[in-house]
């Protein structure tokens, strides 16, 4: 690879910051996407096993009637709103408007807390009615998948709080982008959990 036409042999000195191969992708983005790829396969493994259980367990439908679809619907709206505010915070971070970025991140974190709160309400009501995980195939899959997803939403909220503190000192737009990416990932997974347990 020639450095701007100068034959490599002649180079005696290099400007600091120039001594690396140019790859054009910020290392934070690659690192985060690798981590996200691992996360997708973890939740993918759970959802695939649950789909297999569903196909092998005929009366899945009588059980899924007992789930509370209205709370789940509200939760879906909450997550979608969170996605909108996340992408707006990402957009404002890259146009270096750090005030707006903080605002939108705060809104996304708020959506996360609302989601987890509603989840808590929903679980307590279901357990009150006696639908415990060890009851049958539907309920054990339901609690495992939605529980793990809920933990990931909580983790996403914590990540957002961390990034909000981080960008106070270091103005690194990629940090906001990664927080937004994680939120979108959690949202997409919910798009498949919602119909799997609540609608069908």
């Amino acid at each position: 690879m020639k450095a701007e036409g100068v034959r490599e042999v002649e180079i005696q000195e290099i400007q600091i910051g120039q001594e690396y191969e140019k790859v054009g992708i910020p290392f934070q983005k690659i690192g985060f996407w690798i981590f996200l790829a691992g996360e997708i396969v973890i939740l993918g493994g759970i959802v695939a096993s649950v789909i297999l259980f569903r196909l092998s367990y005929p009366h899945w439908f009588e059980e899924s009637v007992h789930t509370n679809a209205t709370i789940a619907f509200i939760n879906t709206l909450v997550l979608l709103t969170g996605s909108l505010t996340a992408v707006l915070s990402h957009q404002s971070a890259f146009s270096y408007n750090w005030g707006k970025a903080q605002l939108f991140l705060g809104l996304t974190a708020l959506c996360g807390l609302v989601f987890v709160g509603l989840k808590f309400v929903e679980y307590s009501r279901e357990i009150h009615h006696g639908f415990v995980p060890s009851r049958n195939v539907f309920w054990m899959s339901y609690y495992t998948t939605t529980g793990l997803h809920g933990l990931h939403v909580l983790a996403g909220t914590l990540i957002i709080f961390g990034v909000m503190l981080y960008i106070k000192k270091k103005k690194v737009p990629e940090a906001v982008e990664n927080a937004a990416l994680y939120w979108h990932f959690v949202d997409i997974v919910w798009l498949y959990i919602f119909p799997l347990f609540y609608l069908t």
Binding site: E8, I14, E19, V23, I25, P26, F27
Partner: peptide, 8 residues
């Protein structure tokens, strides 16, 4: 991916 030295 991102931190190879120049020429590598």
């Amino acid at each position: 991916l991102t931190m190879r030295v120049r020429g590598l």
